[in-house]
């Protein structure tokens, strides 16, 4: 299977995601932010973490409006899977493919630690391990999931909550750590599964994630 991995200026987790993709036996197709791509050339796209465009304007705002994301939106419409991790989550929210927005952590600090998340609703595309609870690293300053009340209720009712934090580490509404679109082919989370593939990394709950 061919997996597209997007790189923006400021992306810093793309090579980790490449390694994760290869570790699962898939072929990587690098996708550059300035280029649109043939949506039939890949079966899946991953939008990795980092600080795309230096987090200028708002986290993910400029990346969401880049040529490569126009193609990612087209690909998502076909039902093919799109995964966002950390800044990738922020970008997918800014494109409108996912509901809500990620704002500054309620305590104001950047957090970098291991945390436990619980699967609420699953998707057939990602997180294929049998474990309901995953221990994964987080590293973000703006990871507090926010949506207004009607939107939040809709996300809950439509089964779009993917993961919740076991302990709310950033003030996310309803402890939300990951969400999906209604069709469940676009999904994103703040923690980094690509940083937890093997035991020597400190944990392997990120394996079988794609």
């Amino acid at each position: 299977m061919k997996v597209g991995v997007v790189t923006f200026p400021g992306t810093n987790c793309d090579q980790d995601v490449v390694k994760m993709t290869q570790a699962h036996g898939y072929e990587v197709v690098p996708l550059w932010h300035k280029d649109r791509f043939d949506i039939n050339s890949v079966k899946m796209v991953i939008v990795p973490g980092g600080f795309s465009y230096g987090d200028y304007l708002r986290c993910g705002a400029l990346a969401a409006r880049s040529p490569v994301m126009a193609s990612v939106k087209d690909l998502a419409k076909t039902g093919r899977p799109v995964l966002g991790i950390c800044n990738g989550f922020q970008i997918l929210c800014e494109t409108g493919l996912l509901p809500g927005v990620l704002v500054r952590n309620d305590h104001g600090h950047f957090i970098d630690k291991w945390t436990v998340i619980e699967t609420v609703n699953s998707t057939s595309h990602f997180s294929k391990s049998d474990k309901k609870k995953l221990r994964l690293p987080v590293a973000h300053g703006e990871g507090r999931f926010y949506a207004d009340k009607p939107e939040l209720d809709k996300i809950e009712e439509q089964g779009q909550v993917w993961f919740r934090y076991a302990e709310n580490i950033n003030g996310s509404l309803n402890n939300i750590a990951g969400v999906m679109n209604k069709e469940k082919n676009v999904a994103a989370l703040m923690p980094h599964p690509e940083r937890a593939l093997f035991d020597w990394m400190g944990g392997s709950d990120g394996f079988k994630f794609i």
Binding site: L57, R58, V101, V103, E151
Partner: peptide, 8 residues
């Protein structure tokens, strides 16, 4: 379309 996120 770009400068503002009306959610926040």
């Amino acid at each position: 379309q770009t400068l503002l996120n009306p959610l926040i």
